[in-house]
Nucleic acid binder design. Sequence first.
DNA 1: TGCAATATTGCGTAGTCTGCAATAATTGAA
DNA 2: TTCAATTATTGCAGACTACGCAATATTGCA
Lengths: 220, 220
Amino acid sequence: MTDTINPVAAAEPGLRERKRKATSRAIQFAVLELSRDKGLENVTVDDISRRADISPRTFFNYFDSKESAVLGESHLASSLPDDLVEAFLSAGPETPVLDGLRDIMLVVAVPDTDDFELHQLRKEVIHHSPHLLIQRISRMRVFETELTALVEKRMTADALATARPNETPDQATLRDRASLTALVAMAAMRHSWGCWAESAESLSMPVLLTRSFRELRTLI
Amino acid sequence: MTDTINPVAAAEPGLRERKRKATSRAIQFAVLELSRDKGLENVTVDDISRRADISPRTFFNYFDSKESAVLGESHLASSLPDDLVEAFLSAGPETPVLDGLRDIMLVVAVPDTDDFELHQLRKEVIHHSPHLLIQRISRMRVFETELTALVEKRMTADALATARPNETPDQATLRDRASLTALVAMAAMRHSWGCWAESAESLSMPVLLTRSFRELRTLI
DNA sequence: TGCAATATTGCGTAGTCTGCAATAATTGAA
DNA sequence: TTCAATTATTGCAGACTACGCAATATTGCA
């Protein structure tokens, strides 16, 4: 898929692309409305397909499962922007690692603010079946792995910057701390999601994330 | 099901009980060996049942899914021992909440040390499909909820003990902090599980848990 | 032994999910 | 405009999970 000559990226997404987006939206809308009315567990893929005017087979061309359809297409499936990574790694030993992780989360965890209607529906449905939030976390395993590796790199760099020659930081210990740190950051993100799903008013994820990470600091 | 007159509880579990245990073990053994050899995704319930010499229907009398069978019967499905809860709630504002949570985890997260062979097999299999660890966490949603409520109670008590009359602690904020704290504790537990599954040597969960919680304190 | 409680099993069914091959729509280039 | 290549949709068949139900077998206990 080559880019158009037009410097403005995706100025014209093309009919194919637009149709695809429309179908995806139709599916999500269908599953969300049905879930809101009957509860997700009482909704079948056949139901969804019927309402979205597609074949059940097509449904699975778009989503792995009805749960995926509720959660929407997985953003952040791919890796992080380079400049963000660079900033995180070179922040130096003075800056708390968790602050860096918060900044990363701020970028990746903010989803499609474009479609308000879907957004609200999704929130309503997730509010009534919180187990979906856990699924959301589960689907981020790859991200979590990336994150852990990143934190390990950062911690190694920090350690080298501060250590006296003889004090080689134990790599195993470092990896350990890195994975714990990543997990704690994920916990903060999950906390934010939980607040988002519960709150009646629509606080934005950036706000919630910032708050969760701030609270984190007061915990220990 | 009334207790026997024998003061020694379950001195004789009865044939029925023993058979049930044996079947459960046979199932777990079957799924674990098959998973080790072929990978869990290539194992069907039929395979498991055949090897365990039961009908496929019986399998579902014991476990919800093959994943459940790999993870073993869910301990901590029910609620926490009363004395433990009491100790946690009344520890007072001086004791860190996370210390209390660690103590709770120490009790609930330590599984069946009785069956070494299963234990080792399980570790081997989980090591090769880490997504199971996330499932394990997912199945603890009820526990997580209990824990959150518990932390909220504790924090309320602590707040009342230290606050001056006019300073009514905001209940919403408290709930917020409570859920974040619970999530962080869960993160620590997950970290311990991760270490357990990865480590070649068999460090015990209590040791790992203690270490994870100690590291937690150095993070922020 | 014989009755009540419990466990196992087979059967049928609903639902999820995938592979495959035929068909239809879209695209870019001639 | 036309045509060929690419891509999307669909139906169909099949494997698998999961559960309700009723028949049968096993166990516990008097």
